[in-house]
Structures are given as structure tokens and as C-alpha cells.
Computed example of a mutant assay.
Amino acid sequence: MAIAAATAAALSSLSSSSSPSRLFLRTPRALTPRTPRRPRPFSVKALSAPALTQDDLKKLAADKAVEYVRSGMVLGLGTGSTAAFVVAKLGELLKAGQLKDIVGVPTSKRTEEQARGLGIPLSVLDDHPRIDLAIDGADEVDPDLNLVKGRGGALLREKMVEAASKEFVVVADETKLVDGLGGSGLAMPVEIVQFCWKYNLVRLKELFNEEGCEAKLRLNEDGKPYVTDNSNYIVDLYFKTPIKDGPAAGKEISSLEGVVEHGLFLNMATAVIIAGKTGVDVKTK
């Protein structure tokens, strides 16, 4: 009876305790389910491709044109910003061993310096009068693949080299496309001898009065006449309306005494590679 009474007293004491929860084991912290965290808000910004610059487009066209090149070819190397990308790519392929035994015939001193610096073997028309392929840029391209060239000042050498080529591939960006030659409103160059240049400037302007032509002697930044690699001057013709008959215009310009060459490259291009924002397009006749 004494034991039963003691047990009952102990239970009574525990039941009256202020902390009844101590009768139970605590659930381990690791097993306690956690209230899931609300995910932090986030946003995804649409990433748009960077717009292609004019130099990007020129490089795209140049890379495509170099696909025409094969080892062992004699190549006409053009002049200008687009042609410089072609020469640079040729230098890369030579260095990597992907092209071998090519020979370049440069169309200007500027191109010659660039090609020589890249290790491209060079020659001249006297030693290679038959060229496999010429690649060059253009200032204007019409729907018949006729061209205006020479705003870089190398039109005489360009025309000589490209006329001697079995194939002439032109590289350009879409801004060079025109409905008719002279249609861009930019210069159509004519190379003339220095002797009595004003006399020929006036005669060139009078040839194209109907097209509202303006004729200007090309000047350097210092205000002195620009001199070509062949020691000639350049008269730049600016047309308000496109030239109506390219072959007839070229013939009339060439008939003037003192004219060395003009920038109309007619029926010469075998393919024109145009780089635009939607891709590269190859036009052939």
C-alpha cells in the first residue's frame, strides 16, 4: 500500500507541472519538415543579335569569295577596304597550310604592301599575263553586274589586271547595289594625265550635261591634287541621274585625248557576291 501511495503521489505531481510537454521526446531538427521558401522573382531579357556593321558585311563577302581560290592559282589582288579583307584571308589560309603555291598580282602599291607583309608571293602582269582569278570590290553594282570602281584611286591597274583574268569575282555589301550606274550620287572616277587637266575636266562635264553631271578634281586632305600610282590625276564625276547607256558613255570618255582610263567596268564580272543583313547572295550572269 505504501508503494502504491508513493507512485500515485508522483504521478499527481507530474500532472500538475507547468511544462507537460517534457513528457515527450522532441522531433530531431533534421527531420522537421521546413516551410518551402517562396522563389525570388526573376526576369529573362531577350537577347538580340548585334547588328552587323558594314565591315562585317564586307568580311562575309570576302570569306565567300576566297572559296573560289585553289592552290596553284595566279590571283589578281584588288584594292580597297573590301579587297583588303580578301587579302587578309588569303594570308591566313597560306599560314595555316590550307593554300599553297599561289601567286598574287596586286592592283596597287597599297595592296602590294599588305600582301607582302602577309607572306603572299607576288608577281606582275609582265610575268603572268594570264590570271586565273581576280577578286576585288566595287563602288556600284547594277542589275546586269556592271560596275563603277576606282574611288580608291587604283582604277587603271585594277582594270588591266581584271581584264587579264579568266574569272573576275566581285565582293560588296548591299549598300553598293544601284538601279543604274552613277545612281548612288557618289563619284565615278576618270583618270587623266596631269597636263592641261582643267581642259579635260570641262570636256568631261560637257559630255554629261543631260545627266546634270558635276566634275571635280580629286584632292588630298592637304588640298593638293590626288596623284595615282601611275602619276596621274583623277576627275570625279557626280551624276544627278544614272548613266543611260554605260557602253556609250565609256566609249565617249575614252575618246578624249588625255583620258587614261575610266571607272566603268562593263561586262567584266563573272560573279558578284553581295553580303546583306539576311545573308550572302551570289549573283552570276
Score class of each variant (00 low, 15 high):
Glu140Trp: 01
Glu140Arg: 06
Glu140Ile: 02
Asp142Val: 01
Pro143Gln: 12
Pro143Ile: 06
Asp144Val: 06
Asp144Trp: 08
Asp144Gln: 11
Asn146Met: 10
Asn146Gln: 02
Leu147Arg: 01
Leu147Lys: 04
Leu147Cys: 03
Lys149Asp: 07
Gly150Tyr: 04
Gly150Ile: 04
Arg151Ile: 05
Arg151Lys: 10
Arg151Pro: 11
Gly152Pro: 06
Gly152Ile: 05
Gly152Cys: 07
Gly153Trp: 00
Gly153Val: 01
Ala154Asn: 09
Leu155Ser: 08
Leu155Glu: 05
Leu156Lys: 11
Arg157Pro: 14
Arg157His: 14
Arg157Leu: 14
Glu158Asn: 05
Lys159Thr: 08
Lys159Trp: 02
Lys159Phe: 07
Lys159Leu: 13
Lys159Gly: 14
Met160Thr: 15
Met160Trp: 09
Met160Phe: 13
Glu162Asn: 15
Ala163Lys: 15
Ala163Pro: 00
Ala164Ile: 12
Ala164Lys: 10
Ala164Ser: 15
Ser165His: 06
Ser165Arg: 09
Lys166Leu: 15
Glu167Asp: 15
Glu167Ser: 14
Glu167Thr: 13
Glu167Phe: 15
Glu167Pro: 00
Phe168Met: 15
Val169Lys: 09
Val169Gln: 08
Val170Thr: 10
Val170Ala: 10
Val170Pro: 08
Ala172Cys: 13
Asp173Ser: 02
Glu174Cys: 12
Glu174Tyr: 12
Thr175Pro: 12
Thr175Ala: 14
Thr175Ser: 15
Lys176Ile: 11
Leu177Tyr: 04
Leu177Met: 14
Val178Gln: 02
Val178Leu: 07
Asp179Thr: 13
Gly180Thr: 05
Gly180Met: 03
Gly180Asn: 01
Gly180Arg: 01
Leu181Ile: 08
Gly182Glu: 05
Gly183Leu: 10
Gly185His: 04
Leu186Thr: 06
Leu186Val: 00
Ala187Asp: 07
Ala187Gln: 03
Pro189Ala: 11
Glu191Gly: 03
Val193Glu: 08
Gln194Lys: 14
Phe195Ala: 09
Cys196Glu: 11
Cys196Asp: 14
Trp197Ala: 10
Lys198Arg: 14
Lys198Ile: 11
Lys198Gly: 05
Tyr199Gln: 07
Tyr199Leu: 12
Asn200Lys: 13
Val202Pro: 02
Arg203Trp: 09
Arg203Phe: 10
Arg203Glu: 10
Lys205Gln: 15
Lys205Val: 07
Glu206Pro: 02
Leu207Met: 06
Phe208Gln: 01
Asn209Thr: 12
Asn209Arg: 10
Asn209Tyr: 00
Glu210Ala: 08
Glu211Gly: 04
Gly212Phe: 08
Cys213Lys: 01
Cys213Phe: 00
Cys213Tyr: 03
Cys213Met: 02
